[in-house]
Simulated scan of single mutants.
Amino acid sequence: MTMTALTDKFRDYLVLMRLDRPIGIYLLLWPTLWGLWFAAGGVPDAHVLFVFVAGTVLMRSAGCAINDFADRDFDPHVARTRDRPLAAGRVTPEEAVRLSVAVALIAFGLLTSLKNTLALLLALPAVILAAVYPFTKRWISLPQAVLGVAFSWGIPMAYAAVRHTIAWNEVALLMAANMCWVIAYDTFYAMADRADDLKIGVKSSAILFGRYDRLVIGVLHGAALLLLICLGWITGRGALYFGGIAVAAGCALYEQYLTRTREPQACFRAFLHNNWFGLAVFAGLAADYALTA
């Protein structure tokens, strides 16, 4: 294989892992950081923080590769995805599976450096969720719920890594809040693809919710915010934390405005905008702990 061919293949692998589009990394990272900061009562240990940030990047990359493997028969028929490396034939299904497994193993190897048995045990369901989610679009009408669990699993892992135990009264609230948020923003994503999904028979929350899509998203955003407020109250958070929640609420309202016509590109922009929702919550949380420290 020539150097040019190797370079092209490497680039296709990067695109297969969506490293050229980091929005998924951010959306997975924010709740993980929420969990770390709540568990540690502020800035966590640097080693733990590094492992979880790197693990987030790696597991999202592995998930994208297995997602494209699962969708290899669908993506060529969807305008937004037909040029992905696997859909376009530049990467084989076998290569996608091998890449996903290799990246997941690197992430697991990093986690072992913490020497934390509970965190390692919790990593096993995380891998299963990442592998199963891409196939749920064929089986259930709300695959976003499975994605919500997958994208929330870093929260109990964060508590395990920091405290060597799980404070379920806090973790349950934080996971529930994040699951509501994930279903909300991924419904925006599904609204952008709804026409294509209906043609090829893929299930999604946008199809399930139908004309009530924006209403349900608003309810889910509201539920996520209320759960975060409850968690802030029981953990004694201050004004800066609740200020971050207020900014996140403003983000949710703006996304409702963006999608008022349900135009696919606007729905996709609303999905991307949820990065600011997650960042607002984290910024308020981090600033509040920094002030009280």
Rank of each mutant, 00 (worst) to 15 (best):
L27W: 13
L27R: 06
L28N: 02
L29D: 13
P31C: 11
P31Q: 08
P31T: 11
T32N: 14
L33V: 09
L33I: 05
W34E: 12
G35N: 13
G35I: 11
L36F: 10
L36H: 13
A39Y: 14
A40P: 11
A40E: 12
G41N: 14
G41K: 07
G42R: 10
V43M: 15
V43D: 05
P44S: 13
D45F: 03
D45Q: 08
D45I: 05
H47V: 07
H47D: 12
V48E: 10
V51E: 06
V51F: 07
F52E: 13
V53N: 04
V53T: 09
A54Y: 06
A54K: 01
T56R: 12
V57Y: 05
V57I: 15
M59S: 11
S61M: 05
S61L: 11
C64P: 15
I66L: 13
N67E: 08
N67V: 04
F69L: 13
A70C: 08
R72Y: 03
D73P: 00
F74Y: 15
F74Q: 03
D75Q: 07
P76K: 01
V78H: 01
A79G: 01
A79T: 10
A79S: 11
A79N: 05
R80N: 03
R80P: 08
T81K: 05
T81I: 01
R82P: 02
D83E: 14
D83G: 04
D83C: 02
R84G: 04
R84E: 10
A87E: 02
A87L: 05
A88Y: 00
G89T: 02
R90L: 02
R90V: 00
V91F: 03
V91E: 02
T92E: 09
T92V: 07
P93Q: 04
P93L: 03
E94M: 14
E94Q: 15
E95R: 07
A96R: 01
V97T: 08
R98C: 00
R98T: 00
L99A: 14
A102P: 01
V103A: 08
L105H: 00
A107C: 09
A107N: 05
F108E: 06
F108K: 01
F108R: 02
G109D: 07
L110N: 10
